[in-house]
Design a protein around this nucleic acid. Structure first.
Length: 275
DNA sequence: CACTTCCCCTGCAAGC
DNA sequence: TGCTTGCAGGGGAAGT
């Protein structure tokens, strides 16, 4: 599922395709839950606008428009922002999971939002508009400093896994990278955040930073449905140490990896290496 | 306020 | 084989 690295990879790949281009076509298929801004209104906000910047905040993609507005995209769990070359079997027009198509002036490629489970969300903001969804977000996981990270973690009593997943605290971390970072820092997902030592926080911070950067460099993780805009897959999945490995031996000590629900989400960890 | 539980949606795997 | 059931998950809303 797209987390910070996958969204960042998507941002880097679509930026050269859409930057400076003017949107001339917005096809939206029905009133799906993905449209926080209804299709007709979204069309009115986007058609004729030029894309001046492609930014990312946590797991949100922000396409800045030439009138000061912003087109916001969250890929949810199975969302993909892809061009026509990503479609191998059914063409885009016949794909019932394509909810939005953007066409650009001057021969730019079509950009499709495809999302089978429809947990993704799109919305448009006018120049003076703000969104509580964006305002709620904590600092981006790649730009936060260690002192702020530690202070925020230790202010919470919940399980450290649940805290890492809380976007109000830290934006961008999802289930895969939370599990992998906790493994790299030798911390159990169930540890209470406020009981972490300075050294625990230090190791977790370093593990998370390193992990996110390596994942971006590898093109993200293809678990579930994430693909690049051209349909190719991320290569980081092969580097997972615990995620999706329940019952298989820990790469460090051989103990079977355990899966346990934490905050209603499956947590994967090594019961021997992580304390 | 802090934290937990439930729910949206579809594809896939497991069970009968 | 073909059906049903359960599970996966981001994050908002409702509940404790």
């Amino acid at each position: 599922m797209p987390e910070l690295p996958e969204v960042e990879v998507t941002r880097r790949r679509i930026a050269p395709l859409v930057l400076g281009r003017t949107i001339v076509r917005v096809d939206a298929t029905g009133a799906r839950p993905v449209f926080l801004t209804r299709p007709a209104r979204l069309r009115a906000k986007l058609v004729g606008r030029r894309i001046d910047a492609v930014e990312r905040l946590g797991k949100y993609l922000l396409l800045r428009l030439d009138d000061g507005g912003v087109f916001c995209v969250h890929l949810g769990m199975t969302g993909q922002l892809v061009t026509a070359e990503a479609f191998r079997g059914p063409r885009a027009a016949a794909d019932r999971h394509v909810h939005l198509t953007l066409g650009f002036a001057g021969g730019g490629p079509l950009l499709f939002l495809r999302d089978p489970r429809q947990f993704g969300r799109v919305f448009g903001l006018g120049q003076a508009e703000t969104s509580p969804r964006l305002e709620r977000l904590g600092p981006d996981a790649l730009s936060i400093g260690e002192a702020d990270f530690s202070a925020r973690l230790r202010a919470r009593r919940a399980a450290v896994k649940a805290v890492l997943l809380d976007q109000k605290l830290l934006a961008g971390v999802g289930n895969i990278y939370a599990d992998e970072a906790l493994f790299a820092a030798s911390l159990r997902p169930t540890r209470r955040a406020y009981r972490l030592s300075r050294d625990d926080c230090h190791r977790l911070f370093e593990a998370l930073q390193s992990l996110l950067r390596r994942a971006i460099a590898a093109g993200g993780t293809t678990v579930s449905d994430f693909v690049h805009p051209d349909g190719s897959e991320g290569a980081f999945g092969r580097q997972c140490r615990v995620y999706g490995r329940a019952g298989q031996p820990c790469y460090r000590c051989g103990t079977p990896i355990r899966r346990q629900l934490v905050a209603q989400r499956s947590a994967h960890f090594c019961p021997r290496c992580q304390r």
